[in-house]
Each structure stands twice: as C-alpha cells, then as structure tokens.
C-alpha cells in the first residue's frame, strides 16, 4: 500500500477546512482501503472522521428523518424509525454486503462507494473513470454486470449501492459542509451520469464533507418493497434491484415511487414510470406498463441484454409486493 499521512478530525469545521484534493476522509474505510490496496485510489492523506458527532438519527418536526453521516449501515437498518416508516430502506441495507461490512460502513460512505466494474478495479485495464482518456475496456470486454441505463461511450459502470436505490425512491437531501459553508443537494442530483467525464462521480467539492442525509417524510398510507436479484442469495451485488413505494386511494394508486439498482450508472429513479402509475388500478397490467416505460431507453451491451428483462420483472414484482403491503396498511387504518 502506498504511504499516506493520517490525522483525526476534531470538529466538522476543522475537517471541512483541513482537506485538499489529494486527501480523503475515512469513516468505515470499506471502499477506500480496498481501493487503496488495489492502487486505484491514491490519497496522500487520510482524515479520520469517526469521532465527529454525526451518529444521530432524528425525526424532524416536518416529518422528515435526519440521518447523521456516520450512522453505520447496521444501525440504520435496525433503527426503529427506519423499520417503522421506511422499511424499504431497512430491506435494502440488509440486502447489501456482509454483516462485517455493514458494521463498518457508514451512511455517507455508502453514498460515496465506487463501482465494482472489474476494469475500474484493475489499474492495468483502460478505464476512463479511473484514468480519464484511457478508454473503456468494459465496452467490448466482459460486460455482463454493466449498465443498460445511463451509460455513455466513455463509461458503462454500474453504481453498486442498495441503500442508495431505496433513498432514490424515498427522496432525500444531502447536507454538505465545506470551506465555504453549508449547502444542500437533492439526492437525485448528487450522483452524476458519466457522460464524457466519468471520473467526476458526484457533486462534492474539494474539502466538502457529507454531514447528514435527510429522508423525505414517508408516504402514508403506503406499502413498499426492495427486491434484489443476484447470482447468489447473499453477499453479492445486484444484477437488477428495485425499490418500490405505493400509496393507495381505494383500488387505485395514489402516489408511486420506483427506483432501480444494478442496471444503471447511478441510483436510478424512474419518474416517468411513477407518473404512469398514478390513478391506475393497483394490478399487474399497470405495473407491467410502468416497467416498459422504465426500461424504454435501455441500451444493452453484448453480454447484459438479460438485464432489461430482469429489471422489468423486478419492477413488477416489487410493485406487486408494495401494493399488497399498502392494501394491508389501508385495511388496518380503515
């Protein structure tokens, strides 16, 4: 491993002023140290932020849920507020990684995790995301795991997070603290499409630290579901996943939220599919129409055409289960 300096941040303000472009914050370290060992990331200095007071989960007066950047994936998945009001987030978190990694990984770190594209992880391969201008070995290489949505000529790497897919469906706001003060960014605008600058992965400026992620107020009365389809039953990244939330108005769909993982270059909210569900009967035909809309722009590569079908099926199944849960909620409150 390349050498780097190490320091511990003693306050959020200090941390936000302390870092230069070649430095990195470290919290769980599960992505960072992995990629430093592979020589993919080369920070000259690490700033340990684990002692900062960013470990609280609190319900705000407006019904939203503010999650501190350092809340671990395990603690967030099992938090009473999350289990009660955002079960889709709890399910997504527990579908990701392993027990050990969830114990280490933090909320903000999960948002910042890097793609699992094997060409990105191999410094000997061409990768525009890791080494701008070097090309993309995935495009004509083995691309079974790669994106069918949101890709570009320069990059087709999948965003690997489960948690982020649930957050994309729920809706959230990131709070960022930097040398120029604090600002907020909508969750859907934080991750960037690769375009011709795949190395710019997110809207985080030099020295900025994610301090919190605030979830939108929960849909009520609603049902939700996270469905993850993968090569093995546990401890594996998604081939396709879907976070779905529905509220019912009698037999009809009130509001709908649909987001996809495993198939896109960023956590993928399907706004047009959601719009097409509103006011429709909560039945398979409606879900299948939404799935067609969500994948209409899919651009499969040589080996991942199956993901188009798989993602559609994930949407239908997740919506069906969300509708079933919403029906139960509606009955219980009637």
């Amino acid at each position: 491993m390349r050498p780097f300096a190490f320091s511990r941040a003693d306050s959020v303000d200090h941390a936000a002023h302390q870092t230069a472009p070649t430095a990195a914050f470290v919290a769980g370290g599960t992505t960072l140290l992995d990629l430093v060992k592979l020589d993919v990331m080369r920070p000259t200095a690490l700033v340990d932020i684990n002692t900062l007071p960013l470990k609280r989960v609190e319900r705000l007066d407006d019904g939203r849920l503010k999650i501190g950047a350092l809340v671990t994936n395990t603690d967030l998945a099992h938090h009473e507020e999350v289990k009660a009001h955002y079960p889709v987030l709890s399910q997504a978190l527990l579908a990701g990684a392993s027990t050990q990694l969830r114990n280490m990984a933090t909320t903000a770190g999960n948002v910042m995790q890097r793609t699992r594209c094997p060409y990105y992880r191999d410094p000997a391969a061409a990768c525009n995301r890791r080494a701008p201008g070097s090309g993309c070995d995935a495009r004509d290489g083995i691309n079974r795991m790669h994106a069918v949505l949101g890709g570009s000529t320069d990059c087709v790497a999948v965003h690997p997070s489960d948690m982020c897919v649930a957050m994309a469906a729920i809706g959230a706001t990131l709070t960022l603290k930097g040398p120029d003060g604090e600002r907020e960014v909508a969750f859907g605008e934080f991750h960037r499409l690769p375009g011709d600058t795949p190395h710019i992965e997110h809207d985080l400026r030099d020295g900025e630290l994610i301090t919190a992620i605030t979830l939108d107020a929960p849909l009520v009365p609603a049902g939700s579901h996270y469905l993850k389809l993968r090569d093995r039953a546990s401890y594996e990244f998604a081939l396709a996943s879907c976070a779905a939330q529905l509220s019912l108005d009698g037999e009809l769909i009130g509001e709908a939220r649909v987001a996809l993982g495993g198939v896109a270059t960023k956590p993928w909210r399907c706004a047009e599919a959601e719009a097409a569900l509103v006011g429709q009967p909560a039945e398979i035909a409606s879900f299948e129409r939404a799935a067609e809309i969500a994948l209409a722009d899919a651009r499969p590569l040589a080996h991942n055409g199956f993901k188009v079908t798989l993602a559609k099926q994930a949407i239908v199944r997740a919506l069906r289960e969300a509708a079933r849960c919403a029906g139960e909620t509606q009955e219980a409150s009637a």
């Binding site: 050498p3 190490f6 320091s7 302390q18 430095a23």
Partner: peptide
C-alpha cells in the same frame, strides 16, 4: 503531490516508506 494537506503532525515522506509512526 500537494504538501499542504499534511496539516497533521504525521507528515508522510511520500514514496520513502510508511511515513512517521503514530
């Protein structure tokens, strides 16, 4: 490499070993 990032006392002599121990 930008040396200004080493605001901690653990200045790391880049490329010449593992840096000063802490």
């Amino acid at each position: 490499m930008d040396d200004s990032v080493h605001s901690s006392p653990n200045k790391s002599p880049l490329g010449t070993g593992d840096g000063e121990p802490l």
